[in-house]
């Protein structure tokens, strides 16, 4: 008896607009599979950010919101307060969450909002063409740090998983990466754990996922995955930072 591994119906049958080798598509599949496996498709909604994933409302076969830049956690809060027995996740990039949306994500955690956040950290602004993000590494060249990020000029990158794990309302905070098979497996497991945390009503859950951005890193997809291991993981250690 053979089993077939193929696309889950929760991931809509539409071509993704992401660049070749972009991590978004991988995480979209994982989130969709988790929603299917937990059997919550009928009671699940999602909030797309502003950034490369702004079109995510086209990709999940569930009710979707498209939020203003950085405001997805607030939108999700409004939804969850109206439908406390439904489930919702925000899907955000590092510009959306770690820059303009820091107040919203910190306060969603602070309130112990029973929502799940999928946070894609690719150390750059993708959609707008490769600018420096709060998560851009020291020395990393971007279109707004052409000589490499200078920490004396604009500080060192922000570690959101550690920061949010210090907030009592956070019930599950983890950081994973997409660069190896073990890490891919751990990423999906963490996403599932985050949704289970929400379903158990324990509080705020977030998974920060180190993800490749070949186009704006100026690296081939395979090379980008290597760079995650060589440069990002040393600065952004993987693991579970909070688990209630």
């Amino acid at each position: 008896m053979s089993t077939v591994i193929k696309k889950t119906p929760v991931l809509r049958d539409v071509h993704l607009h992401y660049c070749p080798g972009c991590g978004h598509g991988i995480v979209h599949r994982m989130v969709s599979e988790v929603i299917e496996e937990l059997g919550i498709q009928g009671k699940c909604a999602g909030v797309a950010p502003v950034g490369c994933a702004v079109f995510a409302y086209n990709y999940f076969e569930i009710d979707m919101y498209e939020a203003a830049h950085g405001r997805a956690p607030a939108v999700a809060t409004g939804f969850k307060r109206v439908h406390p027995d439904h489930y919702i996740f925000t899907y955000q990039g590092d510009g959306d969450l770690a820059s303009i949306g820091t107040a919203e994500i910190v306060h969603a955690a602070h309130r112990g909002e029973k929502i799940t956040t999928i946070f894609i950290n690719n150390a750059i602004y993708g959609m707008t063409g490769g600018q420096m993000a709060p998560t851009t590494l020291v020395g990393q060249k971007t279109t707004t740090s052409p000589l490499g990020r200078d920490k004396d000029h604009c500080g060192e990158p922000i570690r959101m998983a550690e920061m949010l794990s210090t907030i009592n309302g956070s019930a599950f905070i983890a950081r994973t990466a997409l660069n190896t098979t073990p890490n891919l497996i751990k990423t999906k497991a963490a996403i599932k754990k985050a949704f289970e945390t929400q379903m158990a009503g324990k509080g705020f859950s977030m998974v920060e996922i180190l993800s490749p951005c070949p186009t704006n890193w100026g690296k081939a997809p395979a090379e980008s995955m290597e760079w995650i291991g060589e440069a990002m993981i040393p600065y952004y250690p993987l693991g579970t930072f909070k688990e209630v």
């Binding site: 053979s2 591994i5 696309k7 080798g21 598509g25 991988i26 497996i185």
Partner: peptide, 19 residues
Amino acid sequence: GCAGCFRTCPDTAIEIEKE
């Protein structure tokens, strides 16, 4: 049949029939 390719494919462009 490890499905590593399926897992890392950003566009779910792979299907695997596994024994």
